[in-house]
Design a protein around this nucleic acid. Structure first.
Length: 494
DNA sequence: TTAGGGTTAG
């Protein structure tokens, strides 16, 4: 039934339902796709890891003659980035390999993944293991750990990581100090960073980078006066502000909606004969534009060119985004074509901005054309690209087209992430059909199987939906899965 | 992975 619902009957169809699944959990059909070249080896391995039951992973992989190299392992781990438990199972399997030894970078990937899953004990065990093998830890290892602690809401632990570096045989220097400051600032723990900064600025002989990091931190939490204070202090200590310092403050003004102050600051920079650079202009184009001042934004862009500065791809991206958001996609496309005409190579951001703009104005098919165009030009659509188009298809009631793209992701080289699943699951509630809710339940099972932890809200929503549509038994299955869910992450021990 | 400019919805 579901198959018929989600497919246009006249189309030639082919059942591929989740090629990387041991058994199809649900059958969605999609139109025939063109023959594509064989996937790279790391994609094949990633697919096998995703498909295999953890217990049979070793056996599965031994059926193939992969030649394990640091590069291959790194790429597999990168691909499995959104599938943490699976990635760690793979890492663990190779950790027992008779001849292959994990590289520093493989360890750091694994540590990053474990810490992202908040498996801090696992992460530290890996640090110990890499030390035992004399593969680290390196300053980068600690930067990763600190960042994961900070983004996991454990800023104090992040600071501790930095303070304990030397105990793990890793020297603390100005670079690592700047890194911890930046990690804290980027996670909005600016006060904490500032305290640390005040405490150690003498010991590590803080440089302009440290000051710039702090100024940016205050700007990120919209406390520009404090950023100015940092600038003042910097000058008092005889450290010359750089273009980064000025551009940071300029961006800070825009972030606070202080357009006039931003403009004044820019004039002041000019007056003082600052070497105004492409970043300054890009900040202005974006700042004025997203604040609704499209004409001003375009004037700045033109002024830049007139002054002989060459716009970067980022400058074009800013302008294109401004047109998409505050003007029209048609004008944005004109800028896009102008950019291409001048020999620029649009990047992932360019395409994502354009595709989002098109979808937003109801031109999803045209967005899809751009997706093809980017692929033809060697720019692989990212999971965000897919998510945008899938979302708009679903919003438009074109569920089958959304699923078609979802299938394409699974078959190809761009694995779905948590957002992808959430988008699709939400879409399953629109038609209020029993069959759709069963799909939602199956998606939920699939995402858990791949190591994503759905929010409680998602579980409850699907459960309620199933119960209301008379799928009580299936709801019970899901309920049992939910209770197992908490244990899934804990089961991955190294 | 020591700092600044372009992607994200409701």
């Amino acid at each position: 039934m579901l198959n018929q619902l989600l497919v246009k009957p006249a189309q030639r169809t082919l059942n591929t339902s989740h090629l990387y699944h041991p058994k199809p959990r649900f059958c969605l059909q999609l139109t025939t796709v063109a023959e594509s070249p064989p996937p790279p080896e790391d994609a094949t391995v990633a697919k096998l890891v995703l498909e295999s039951d953890p217990k049979s992973l070793a056996e599965t992989l031994s059926n193939y003659s992969f030649k394990w190299t640091p590069n291959l392992v790194d790429n597999v781990l990168k691909r499995l980035w959104n599938h943490g438990p699976k990635a760690l199972q793979f890492f663990k399997h190779l950790d027992r390999h008779p001849t292959y030894i994990h590289s520093t970078s493989a360890f750091e990937h694994a540590i990053d993944i474990a810490a992202r899953l908040r498996e801090y004990n696992t992460a530290w065990a890996l640090v110990g293991r890499m030390r035992g093998l004399r593969r680290g830890p390196t300053p980068k290892t600690f930067a990763i750990l600190a960042e994961r602690y900070a983004t996991g809401g454990k800023a104090h632990r992040a600071v501790k990581v930095f303070l304990s570096m030397h105990e793990h045989g890793c020297h603390q220097d100005l670079n690592s100090f700047n890194t911890i400051l930046d990690v804290l600032c980027k996670t909005k723990r600016v006060e904490m960073a500032y305290n640390l900064f005040k405490m150690f600025k003498g010991r590590f002989k803080c440089d302009s980078v440290s000051y710039n990091i702090m100024a940016n931190g205050w700007c990120l939490i919209k406390r520009t006066p404090m950023a100015l204070q940092v600038l003042k202090e910097m000058v008092e200590r005889g450290i010359t502000p750089t273009m980064v310092t000025y551009n940071t403050l300029l961006k800070g003004y825009f972030r606070c909606g202080q357009l006039n102050d931003a403009w004044e600051f820019f004039l002041e920079m000019k007056k003082r004969k600052c070497e105004i650079d492409v970043v300054t202009y890009t900040t202005m184009v974006h700042g004025f534009g997203v604040a609704g001042e499209v004409k001003r934004s375009k004037r700045v862009f033109d002024a830049m060119v007139k002054e002989g500065l060459v716009p970067s791809v980022a400058t074009y991206n800013a302008l294109i985004q401004v047109f998409c958001k505050k003007d029209s996609v048609q004008n944005a496309l004109l800028v896009f074509e102008e950019m291409v005409g001048k020999g620029y190579v649009p990047n992932l951001t360019t395409y994502n901005v354009v595709i989002r703009g098109l979808c937003h104005s109801g031109e999803i098919e045209k967005g899809l054309e751009f997706m093809k165009r980017m692929e033809e030009h060697g720019c692989k659509p990212s999971v965000q690209t897919y998510n945008v188009v899938i979302r708009y298809y679903c919003d438009d009631g074109e569920l089958e087209k959304g699923f078609e793209l979802f299938e394409k992701m699974g078959n190809g080289t761009c694995l779905p992430n948590l957002d992808t699943y959430n988008i699709l699951i939400s879409a399953m509630f629109v038609r209020k059909k029993s069959e759709d809710l069963v799909v939602a339940g199956k998606l939920l099972i699939e995402m858990v199987g791949r190591g994503f932890l759905p929010r409680k809200f998602t579980f409850n929503r699907v459960l309620n939906g199933l119960v209301l549509t008379g799928n009580r038994e299936f709801a019970n299955d899901i309920l049992r899965m939910q209770s197992r869910c908490g244990r899934i992450l804990r089961n991955v021990k190294l």
